[in-house]
């Protein structure tokens, strides 16, 4: 097959390079916040459910309130399937920044998983005789700090300020979660803080991103 080869000068050549690079960048800017919105609403709902159960269940049964977090496993699976399906439906052009953002969230997920497992081992096995349950108070602030870190990197990499502000909200929330026991002596308040952080750090920025790119869930 013979192709048409257009002869072009150096100015046209430079213009073509600039146009193509900006087209590739344009595609990169068309990301959506659906994933972050999905997680935002789901974790907010689970945090509120955990709070309500802690308030309503009595005695030993209170421990079962934390079981609501098991719902995050099918949620994670649903999110993964959604991501794979939408990635398949879209035209394919993998971006370095998209990859970096993915790696940061994946690394944070593994870190949080190890953190939760370590807390369980320490609280239930090693420190069982020494008020080991207090170790659980660390989980929320630690996970919220890690989420803040991911949001901050995500916001800076894709130059979307609301994610950066969301990161600040999560860091403040982590600190507030640690202080809440001191102020009201009630651990369940940590979940109200978490739900608020989800609204301010995930849901609102996610909708803002969708509004910016003209997509919505």
């Amino acid at each position: 097959m013979k192709t048409m080869e257009k002869v072009f000068d150096e100015q046209e050549s430079l213009k073509l390079i600039t146009d193509m690079i900006s087209q590739a960048r344009e595609r990169f800017q068309q990301r959506n916040g659906n994933g972050i919105i999905l997680w935002g609403y789901s974790i907010m709902a689970l945090a509120l459910a955990n709070f309500v159960l802690l308030q309503t269940l009595a005695g030993e049964c209170k421990t079962y309130a934390y079981m609501v977090w098991l719902c995050s496993i099918p949620l994670f699976a649903a999110h993964y399937i959604y991501e794979v399906r939408t990635a398949k439906a879209k035209e394919h052009a993998g971006n370095y920044i998209d990859k970096m953002i993915g790696y940061v969230w994946a690394a944070s997920f593994v870190t949080n998983l190890i953190l939760v497992a370590s807390v369980f081992i320490l609280a239930c096995v090693v420190l069982r005789e020494y008020q080991g349950w207090t170790m659980f108070l660390v989980i929320n602030p630690a996970i919220m700090s890690a989420v803040g870190l991911c949001l901050f990197i995500n916001g800076q990499l894709c130059r979307f300020r609301p994610f950066v502000y969301g990161a600040v909200v999560f860091w403040a929330g982590a600190l507030a979660s640690a202080l809440v026991m001191m102020v009201c002596g009630d651990q369940s308040m940590q979940f109200i803080i978490l739900a608020l952080c989800m609204i301010l750090g995930f849901i609102i920025p996610g909708h803002m991103l969708n509004r910016k790119t003209g997509q919505d869930v």
């Binding site: 073509l16 390079i17 146009d19 193509m20 690079i21 087209q23 590739a24 960048r25 990169f28 035209e91 394919h92 052009a93 993998g94 971006n95 370095y96 990859k99």
Partner: peptide
């Protein structure tokens, strides 16, 4: 080439 220089890979 200009498109590929800006992305990791493209179909």
């Amino acid at each position: 080439i200009s498109l590929l220089i800006s992305v990791d890979e493209a179909d």
